[in-house]
Simulated scan of single mutants.
Amino acid sequence: MSEVVTDRLRMALEAMAQKDDDAAWEVIDGDDEINQLYLDLEDDCIDLLALQQPVAGDLRLIASSFKIITDLERIGDLAANLAEYTLDADRDMFPEVDVQAIGDRTIEMVTDAMAAYASADVEACYAIAERDDDIDERCRSASQTVIRDLIETEIDAATDDAEIEALMQDVSRLLLTVRDLERVGDHAVNISARTVYMVDNDDELIY
Rank of each mutant, 00 (worst) to 15 (best):
L48W: 10
D98M: 08
R8P: 02
A116S: 14
A101D: 13
D88N: 11
I128T: 04
F66K: 03
D58K: 13
R194Y: 15
A115K: 11
Y197Q: 05
Y85G: 00
R10E: 15
T6G: 04
M16E: 01
I28Q: 03
M109E: 08
A23Y: 09
I62N: 13
V27H: 00
E182F: 06
D134E: 15
D160A: 02
A50K: 01
I68G: 10
G76R: 00
E123M: 04
D29P: 00
E84R: 14
V55P: 04
D43K: 13
V184C: 08
D77K: 07
L174A: 05
D112Y: 04
V189C: 08
D200R: 12
D132F: 11
A17H: 13
A12G: 03
N201M: 00
G57C: 02
D98R: 11
L87G: 04
A162Q: 13
L167S: 09
L37F: 06
A162C: 01
R60P: 09
D7I: 03
E14K: 13
T86W: 02
M168H: 09
D90A: 07
A188T: 05
D161F: 13
L205P: 01
L150F: 10
D121F: 03
Q169C: 10
R74G: 05
V122E: 03
R140Y: 05
L176H: 10
D20K: 07
I135N: 04
L41N: 07
I102C: 04
T145V: 09
R60M: 08
I68V: 15
R10F: 08
I191T: 07
M16V: 02
